[in-house]
């Protein structure tokens, strides 16, 4: 029973991360019908910008709450700007072209970020940039306190990360369903052309969607980097893939679906890896994806849309 509960705690903490990343995929897919391949790498950039800001502030030596907040906000701003830039320069010029063109560009952007960060550094700054392929240690934002509740290990990191992740998901629900921007976003996702005719600035909504998704990715990255402190330029690859699976599982384009998908995927991974096949952890998401595509390709909450000619 303790083992079961321990897996539950671990699964939920991984699952909330997947859910946060999956939200970015699903929102962008909703408005653009594009799988933003670079999303996992925006997550990676989130972790690294946090790392550089933390070092610039000296947060690693004497961690304080304002410094941790500054790192958090700074990294969110960097990622939001990055998301907007990617949309503006890589995807917007291609919006009228065949979908394959945008997909190839997305793959290109993803690899540009992954391998651009692995280049030898310029040596201008105190912390080498680009960081190169060696893993780096993310400074601890606050001291780790662990509790043992009836044998279940739980740390303050788990609690904070769970609370922050849920807070942001609630906030997103508010934004999507209670604000003008959210309504515009849902309209664009329903039919971009008609939304444009109704006076919605489609370009601005799409850019806003990218910013929102990228900010959530940076939150996820910081929560992960805080508790598992090694970061490297390829760290976004696997979480990105798995979050995509989570988004498909929940029904791509569906916001609550991505949250549920992320949690289910995190739990499934933790339980299967814990009880059955520990070394095949990374293969589980893939197996789930294949089953979903075979059984219910529109996902848990997705609706089947007839393709129009």
């Amino acid at each position: 029973m303790t083992e079961f509960l321990q897996h539950l705690v671990n699964g939920l903490s991984v699952g909330t991360i997947y859910a946060l990343i999956a939200l970015g995929y699903t929102m962008v897919y909703g408005v653009l019908k594009l799988i933003n391949f670079a999303h996992g790498d925006v997550y990676m950039v989130g972790a690294f910008s946090g790392y550089y800001i933390a070092h610039a502030l000296g947060a690693g030596d004497r961690p304080t709450l304002p410094k941790a907040l500054a790192v958090f906000v700074g990294s969110m701003v960097v990622c939001g700007a990055l998301g907007a830039a990617i949309e503006r320069f890589a995807y917007r010029p291609l919006r009228a072209r065949p979908r394959l063109t945008a997909l190839i560009t997305a793959i290109g952007v993803s690899f540009l970020l992954e391998y651009g960060f692995q280049l030898p550094s310029f040596g201008l700054t105190t912390q080498p940039f680009p960081p190169g392929p060696t893993p780096r240690f993310f400074p601890q934002p606050f001291a780790r306190v662990s509790w043992s509740l009836g044998g279940v290990e739980l740390s303050n990191y788990d609690v904070v990360s769970f609370a922050v992740a849920f807070g942001f998901m609630l906030l997103l629900q508010l934004v999507v369903y209670r604000t003008r921007f959210g309504r515009a976003m849902r309209a664009v996702s329903f039919d971009a052309q008609v939304a444009g005719l109704m006076g919605i600035n489609v370009n601005r909504v799409i850019a806003g969607t990218f910013v929102l998704g990228s900010v959530l990715a940076s939150v996820a990255a910081l929560l992960v980097a805080g508790s598992r402190p090694t970061i490297n330029p390829l760290m976004g690859l696997m979480p990105g893939l798995k979050a995509f699976v989570a988004a498909v599982f929940g029904g791509i384009g569906n916001v609550p679906g991505a949250m549920v998908g992320g949690l289910v995927l995190g739990l499934a991974e933790e339980y299967v890896a814990g009880y059955l096949l520990s070394s095949y952890r990374d293969a589980i998401a893939f197996a789930i994806l294949i089953v979903v595509l075979l059984v219910r390709p529109e996902g848990l909450f997705g609706r089947v849309r007839a393709e129009k000619v």
């Binding site: 594009l34 799988i35 391949f37 979908r99 394959l100 997909l103 793959i107 690859l237 696997m238 893939l241 995509f244 699976v245 498909v248 070394s279 095949y280 990374d282 293969a283 998401a285 893939f286 994806l289 294949i290 595509l293 075979l294 390709p297």
Partner: peptide, 25 residues
């Protein structure tokens, strides 16, 4: 079989995943 029943972009991500899974296996 599973990924080609849908549109092209699923294949991209499934093949990328497959590439990684083969390595893990």
């Amino acid at each position: 079989m599973p990924s080609l029943r849908l549109r092209g972009d699923y294949l991209a991500i499934v093949t990328l995943g497959f590439n990684e899974i083969i390595r893990v296996i």
